[in-house]
Design a protein around this nucleic acid. Sequence first.
DNA 1: CTACGTACCTGCCAGC
DNA 2: TGCTGGCAGGTACGTA
Length: 270
Amino acid sequence: MPELPEVEVTRLGISPHLLGQRLEGAIVREPRLRLPVNPDLAEQISGQTVRQLRRRGKYLLLDLEHGSILIHLGMSGHLRVLPRDTALRKHDHVDLLITDQLCLRFNDPRRFGALCWLEDVDQHPLIARLGPEPLTADFSGEYLYALSRHRQIPVKAFLMDAHIVVGVGNIYANESLFAAGIDPRRPAGRVALTRYQRLAQTVREVLQSAILQGGTTLRDFSRPDGRNGYFRLSLAVYGREGQACIRCGAALHSLRIGGRATTYCSHCQR
DNA sequence: CTACGTACCTGCCAGC
DNA sequence: TGCTGGCAGGTACGTA
């Protein structure tokens, strides 16, 4: 997926086509996503104007006059704005019909994503309990330090917990910890305040830089306009097991933390 | 409460 | 060539 930068790049890409537009309906071909698509989605959204297009963590929220459409891209989801008569591809699960014969087409091979209409999206349990945004002022080293006391969980798993802070997935957790010089296995409760301050800073820098470069294109993420992101060229550790650390030259190590591939430099990260 | 394993689903790639 | 197993950017839930 789609981590926070990819979702933000998607939001920026589709916004001009949706903001202020009146939705004319929806076509649901496969409702079985992580959250089921509303059986009566077309009736619920049809005739409504898109008031705002927000991002909360990795969720995209299309605020309508009444209620909101919640979209999550899961591991393999993808959104594109296309002419409605564009030939269907495998896994094109939902079309939101916009004006001028255009549609917002949701494609998701693994169906770990979501697209549904909710009356009050901010009160939904999936959204209401999320941690702060990493790019706003309420996310800081002091905050991470305070929440991590007495926690034994590896700091990488702590950083990837959306109830702590949203939007930091596997790629950017690996990259931020490398940039901050912190061993991903270290218990979260044993990281000092000054090192959390450094980590909060590297998280912000890594995410911001990825957004500016159009996200990280791996197997199946590309931007809504079909162009690729270039952040992959900047990855220091993710996917580089066995290769030389860009800082000290030692071979990078790899292991699994919380079931996720973790790559780090045992010399630079302590 | 915390930590951990597992499940959801399809596609792709390495290895046999 | 073709099969199989393992792995993939996320998240929620069950269990101890």
